[in-house]
Computed example of a mutant assay.
Amino acid sequence: MKVLVTGGSGFIASWIRKELTARGHQAIVMDHQDRRQHLADSEEFFLADVRDPTAVTEAAAHADGIIHLAAVLGTQETITNPRPSAETNIIGSLNVFEAAAQYNLPTVYAGVGNHAFRLIGTGCYTITKSAAEDLARMYNLYRDGGRITIVRPVNAYGPGQSVAAPYGTSKVRKILPALSCRALTGSPIEVYGDGTQISDCVYVADVANAFVTALEYTAEHGPTERPVEVGPLESRTVNDIARLVGEHAALLTGREPVGVVHLPMRPGEIPNAVVSSDTETLKQIGLDAADFVPLEDGIRRTVEYFHDAWLPGYLAA
């Protein structure tokens, strides 16, 4: 199967492309940034923005299926500047769904793990991603060619994830890079709020497996009845995650584990929030969260990656 991957140069997309290749599929990488130098020999590159309906339709014409990941990310960032996320996450998704319906393509859409927050107040990222879920359901119900499965991963993490300031150039702060970089450089780990909130994390290889499995399922059976939620069996607090990161960083650096500093929560973040997943929904595509990489093992692999691949360059700068 030739699979169009929108936002195909991103972190999760890079792992999905590996999974596609391992299963004998071919990726068509669509991205608005020209990063074709990072492609495998078997992959094609399509330089385009999902906000361009003509470009999306042209790319879809060459595909047998679509995994739609392209989005403007960020909680605080989309509150202070909501228009880009609305244009990309809603209109861009509409363009993808319309092209998929035109060519009758099985499609997997990347939903958002904290979708329920839109009912109690959150950033434009969650609002717009959830709106696109509603569009997907509309296509499945009322449009010929509507074959869209929604996959909702919680916080994906793992090797290769981008690093935000002050340690890197990414504009969006992600939990594992932020915690790992501080711990590896001997700085206290910063946790927003009291750290008792649940913010489940899932290893990126398991996320990639779920997306590709969902696409194969949709190609054969049509869309799943319910969104597929990808996360761990056991929920853990942000304090738990910070402790594990600190312990693994200490083992690698030979220092004592760094402390934790609690900061005020930022706009769009909710005290005592629970971001978790209904792992029973994985059974729709034949997966079991019991087979996922355990949090302790995944954090070890991730901290080791930042220690080996990121830290030397940072210290030398």
Rank of each mutant, 00 (worst) to 15 (best):
G111W: 04
G111N: 04
V112I: 14
G113I: 11
G113A: 08
G113M: 13
A116S: 08
A116Y: 05
F117S: 02
F117T: 05
R118L: 12
R118Q: 10
I120Y: 04
I120A: 02
G121W: 04
T122K: 10
Y125L: 15
Y125E: 06
T126C: 06
T126M: 06
T126S: 12
T126V: 15
T128N: 15
T128V: 13
T128R: 09
K129I: 09
K129C: 10
A132L: 08
L135M: 14
R137Y: 12
Y139L: 14
N140P: 00
N140H: 01
L141W: 00
Y142H: 10
R143N: 03
R143Y: 03
D144T: 03
G146H: 03
I148G: 01
I148R: 04
I148K: 03
I148D: 04
T149S: 14
I150M: 09
V151I: 03
V151D: 06
V151L: 14
P153W: 08
P153K: 07
V154D: 04
V154R: 06
A156H: 00
A156L: 03
G160L: 14
Q161H: 08
Q161Y: 05
S162Q: 08
V163T: 01
A164R: 09
A164N: 12
P166R: 09
Y167C: 11
G168A: 14
G168M: 13
G168Y: 13
S170D: 15
S170K: 13
S170L: 14
K171Q: 15
V172D: 00
R173D: 08
R173I: 09
R173V: 14
R173E: 15
K174M: 06
I175L: 14
I175D: 00
I175T: 05
L176R: 00
L176S: 04
L176W: 00
A178W: 09
A178C: 05
L179M: 15
L179T: 03
S180P: 01
S180V: 05
C181E: 08
C181R: 09
R182F: 01
A183G: 10
L184W: 10
T185G: 05
P188G: 14
I189P: 00
V191E: 12
G193Y: 12
G193P: 11
D194M: 12
D194A: 13
G195W: 06
G195P: 03
Q197L: 07
Q197S: 13
D200C: 15
D200A: 11
C201R: 02
C201W: 07
V202T: 11
Y203S: 06
V204S: 02
A205C: 03
A208F: 03
N209W: 00
N209F: 02
A210N: 01
F211M: 04
V212F: 04
T213L: 10
A214W: 04
L215D: 07
E216H: 10
E216F: 09
Y217D: 14
Y217A: 12
T218P: 08
A219K: 10
A219F: 07
A219W: 06
